[in-house]
Computed example of a mutant assay.
Amino acid sequence: MRTRLALSSLRSPRRPRLWFEILLIAVSYWLYSLVRNAVPEQKTAALRNADWIWSLEHSMGLAFEQTVNHAVNSVTWLIVSMNYYYATLHFVVTIGVLVWLFRRHPGRYAAARLALFATTAVALLGYYVFPLAPPRLMNGGGFFDTVMLHETWGSMASGNFKHMSNQYAAMPSMHIGWSLWCGLTICALASAPWARILGALYPVATLVVIVATANHFWLDAVGGMACLTFGVAMSYAWYGALPHRLPKRIQGPGRSRLRALRRPPRRAPEPVSRAAGPGTVAD
């Protein structure tokens, strides 16, 4: 009984603590980067897989990445903007949504955070079992590495930063996984129509950016969506509801439900007899 109560308490949304969340996010991202970059690059396998993906997309009639890459690259201000978008918004928007959830939707924060963390964790498995070179690194692919070409600071996988990141971990795309998590969260919880519109457009714009900058195939985006599906399923299995279905705020401390379950049932009040006063006869 006590174990069941403890498990029920753990699976109940609780008020997030700022210091713990900052530490958790920092340590989690450090571990994610460490594991991702520790995965063997497997260059030969990654290039072979890239050729296979490119051939598969051709057979489907959907190999449009090179056309988009060349078209956008011809407009300098646009491709440079996309380089900076790729490098910054991936982190800025995700952290911004986490902060917004923490402040405005504390009852839903933990479930949404679990979905994001599970999404990211399963992506590591993809990097290990299916190393994949991005289009810009394909042999004879004809793609432009837009960061190198325009000498902009844009990607941890290009320029002076290329030795700090695994070059062959393109599948799945966490730019899509994270941006779709942000977009769905905003669409589900934001009250302002303009915010919901921006939330819906954000993953679409991210898809255009990752293709235009030749950092991903569109099939990498499908992999990111699959990872997010897994992450949301894990959150649902743990909390018993989708994040937006949980209460917006938590009343009382996080363990109030456990204390309520342990509290003995309230006894019914005993009848009160009337005191015998002057001139009355007691029964």
Results as ranks from 00 to 15, higher is better:
Arg15Asp: 01
Trp54Lys: 09
Arg36Asn: 10
Thr146Lys: 09
Ile53Asp: 06
Phe64Trp: 07
Glu65Met: 07
Val232Ala: 15
Ala118Asn: 06
Gly183Arg: 06
Met156Trp: 01
Met225Val: 11
Trp153Pro: 03
Arg249Gln: 14
Ile197Gln: 08
Pro193Thr: 13
Gly252Tyr: 06
Lys162Ala: 11
Met138Asn: 12
Phe117Ile: 15
Ile176Met: 14
Met82Ala: 14
Val147Arg: 01
Arg257Pro: 15
Arg266Met: 12
Phe64Gly: 09
Gly96Cys: 11
Ala221Glu: 01
Asp51Pro: 04
Trp30Gln: 09
Ala226Tyr: 03
Leu261His: 07
Tyr239Cys: 00
Arg255Val: 00
Val204Tyr: 05
Met82Arg: 01
Arg257Ile: 09
Ser191Asn: 07
Gln66Gly: 14
Ala133Tyr: 04
His175Ala: 10
Arg249Tyr: 05
Ser12Glu: 09
Val93Phe: 10
Leu56Ile: 02
Ala260Trp: 08
Arg263His: 10
Trp178His: 08
Ala195Lys: 03
Val39Phe: 08
Thr76Asn: 07
Asn166Ile: 00
Gly254Val: 04
Arg17Tyr: 02
Thr67Lys: 08
Leu56Asp: 06
Arg104Thr: 05
Gly199Ile: 15
Trp194Ser: 04
Thr88Ile: 13
Lys43Asp: 00
Val92Asp: 02
Ala112Trp: 02
Val129Asp: 03
Thr67Ala: 14
Ser59Lys: 07
Pro243Met: 04
Gly107Thr: 08
Thr67Leu: 11
His90Cys: 01
Leu201Trp: 04
Ala268Thr: 14
His216Ser: 07
Gly223Ser: 09
Val211Ile: 09
Ile95Glu: 06
His70Asn: 12
Pro247Cys: 13
Val204Lys: 09
His216Ile: 02
Asp220His: 05
Gly252Lys: 09
Ala276Phe: 05
Leu219Lys: 02
Tyr239Gln: 00
His244Asp: 12
Asn83Tyr: 02
Leu62His: 12
Phe102Leu: 06
Trp218Glu: 14
Arg113Met: 11
Val232Lys: 09
Pro134Val: 03
Trp77Asp: 04
Ala110His: 10
Leu124Met: 04
Phe230Arg: 06
Gly240Asp: 06
Phe130Leu: 02
Trp54Tyr: 10
Gly141Met: 03
Leu242Thr: 04
Tyr85Leu: 00
Trp52Ala: 15
Asn139Met: 07
Val72Trp: 04
Ser155Tyr: 15
Arg263Thr: 12
Arg262Trp: 02
Ile79Trp: 01
Val39Asn: 15
Val281Phe: 10
Gln66Ser: 15
His58Thr: 01
Arg259Val: 12
Trp100Phe: 07
Arg11Lys: 15
Trp238Glu: 08
Arg4Thr: 05
Ile250Met: 06
Trp181Asp: 05
Glu57Lys: 11
